Amino acid sequence: MLRSLILLFVTLLAVPATAQEVYRFGDDAYMAGDNVTLTGEAVDDAFIAGNTVVLSASVNGSAHAGGRSVSISGPVGKSLYAAGLNVNMSGGVGDDAHLIGDTVLVNNDVGGDLRAAAQRIEINGAVGDSALVAAENILLTGAIAGDASFSVDNLSFGDNARIEGTLYLYAEDPNDIDIPDSVVPQDRISRHDIDDFDASADPEGGATLDRSRPGIVAWLVGTITSILILTAIATLISALAPSFLLALRLRTLETPARALWMGFLTISALAGSLFLFALTGFGILLIPVSIVLAVLLGIAGYVIGTYILGVGLLGATNRPLPETLSERAIAALVGAVAITVLAMIPFIGWIATLAIALAGAGALVIRWFAPGFYTEVR
């Protein structure tokens, strides 16, 4: 769940490009921009990122969409992956649906499993298999053919709501939530404390945390998930601001030591300002701002450094600079794998990873503010 929220948070922070970029390779569609709309003939797979995203064309394969407002009105033949502030799925999904947002509306049928994380979610369509949902407020008006695992504070139902399998309910006080027998009989309800909820579990058969699961399996799943999330974030940013990332890469390679030093200096200044603000009394109000800025700069530097590392490794194999969205995605994946493996090296791995993140943050600061030292003022 934490990784999903981080992915959503960084997605919402990404500054969209002003122009819509469209790239088609085979039967797949790749699009990025401010207001992005995919219409017309059906495509195989769709990869879309922007501020406002509308997918009304038919997708025979899988659809991937990210933005502040995401609307899926066309049918998706296989799986749907969507993240945004507001996600509205009004087109049917043939297989599984994976949805993340503040408000998520499922207004059509999902043929397979439903996985969703939100502040508020409405499930108004039918779910063909199981549902694993984590949200503060859940409204179920449709039917779920399999098991349902709900981590929730407030749960309500429509007249036609129905759960054919077992309801695994996770809440602060699960016994305080009333479930009508018309939705699911009491003998098919399993109530658990909210701390036992496992968002990475298989929706079928509940989502209760298995504390006996082998550590190597959990580590492997977590590592692969982290790589994919980092790849997705870096790809999204490279799609929205390709020229900006290219400039950062050139700046970093021109003066790597300066970028490293500037990243270290800026993050240290933001962190060190906490004590100065505290001394001024009223400046205590600015302490949260300083913390948030330091964290955001560190995250941005880590993502930028990962992408630059991936481009550099591909360049070492005589590959040209990435120009298309698919090439940028490959560079992001190579960088994510490389920095993950690098972090595993004992003793020096974390130092190298930190250096890459600081260099990325420094390149960003240099690009935005162009600071200089020993500059003569006339």
Score class of each variant (00 low, 15 high):
residue 251 R to F: 01
residue 251 R to K: 08
residue 251 R to W: 03
residue 251 R to P: 09
residue 252 T to N: 15
residue 252 T to A: 10
residue 253 L to A: 10
residue 253 L to T: 15
residue 254 E to A: 12
residue 254 E to Y: 02
residue 255 T to S: 14
residue 256 P to S: 14
residue 256 P to V: 07
residue 256 P to F: 14
residue 257 A to K: 08
residue 257 A to V: 12
residue 258 R to A: 14
residue 258 R to C: 00
residue 258 R to V: 05
residue 259 A to V: 09
residue 259 A to L: 05
residue 259 A to M: 10
residue 259 A to E: 14
residue 259 A to K: 00
residue 260 L to G: 00
residue 260 L to N: 00
residue 260 L to W: 03
residue 260 L to V: 03
residue 260 L to Q: 00
residue 260 L to F: 09
residue 260 L to H: 00
residue 261 W to T: 07
residue 261 W to V: 06
residue 261 W to M: 09
residue 261 W to S: 14
residue 261 W to Y: 11
residue 262 M to E: 15
residue 262 M to D: 15
residue 262 M to N: 14
residue 262 M to Q: 12
residue 262 M to W: 12
residue 262 M to H: 08
residue 263 G to M: 13
residue 263 G to T: 13
residue 263 G to W: 07
residue 263 G to L: 11
residue 263 G to R: 08
residue 264 F to D: 02
residue 264 F to W: 00
residue 264 F to I: 04
residue 264 F to V: 02
residue 264 F to T: 01
residue 265 L to E: 01
residue 265 L to A: 14
residue 265 L to T: 07
residue 265 L to M: 13
residue 266 T to C: 05
residue 266 T to A: 15
residue 266 T to V: 11
residue 266 T to G: 10
residue 266 T to W: 10
residue 267 I to H: 06
residue 267 I to C: 15
residue 268 S to D: 00
residue 268 S to A: 10
residue 268 S to F: 12
residue 268 S to V: 14
residue 268 S to G: 07
residue 269 A to Y: 08
residue 269 A to T: 13
residue 269 A to I: 13
residue 269 A to D: 15
residue 269 A to Q: 12
residue 270 L to D: 04
residue 270 L to W: 11
residue 270 L to N: 04
residue 270 L to G: 04
residue 271 A to Q: 07
residue 271 A to W: 09
residue 271 A to M: 08
residue 271 A to Y: 07
residue 271 A to R: 10
residue 272 G to M: 06
residue 272 G to T: 04
residue 272 G to F: 15
residue 272 G to H: 07
residue 273 S to V: 02
residue 273 S to C: 07
residue 273 S to Y: 05
residue 273 S to L: 07
residue 274 L to C: 11
residue 274 L to S: 06
residue 274 L to T: 09
residue 274 L to E: 10
residue 274 L to H: 13
residue 275 F to M: 09
residue 275 F to I: 04
residue 275 F to H: 03
residue 275 F to L: 13
residue 275 F to N: 00
residue 276 L to E: 00
residue 276 L to T: 09
residue 276 L to P: 05
residue 277 F to K: 01
residue 277 F to N: 10
residue 277 F to W: 06
residue 277 F to H: 13
residue 277 F to S: 10
residue 277 F to C: 04
residue 278 A to Q: 03
residue 279 L to Y: 02
residue 279 L to H: 01
residue 279 L to D: 10
residue 280 T to E: 01
residue 280 T to S: 04
residue 280 T to M: 00
residue 280 T to Y: 01
residue 280 T to G: 03
residue 280 T to A: 00
residue 281 G to N: 03
residue 281 G to Y: 05
residue 281 G to R: 10
residue 281 G to L: 06
residue 282 F to A: 11
residue 283 G to C: 02
residue 283 G to V: 03
residue 283 G to S: 02
residue 284 I to E: 06
residue 284 I to V: 13
residue 284 I to A: 09
residue 284 I to K: 03
residue 284 I to T: 05
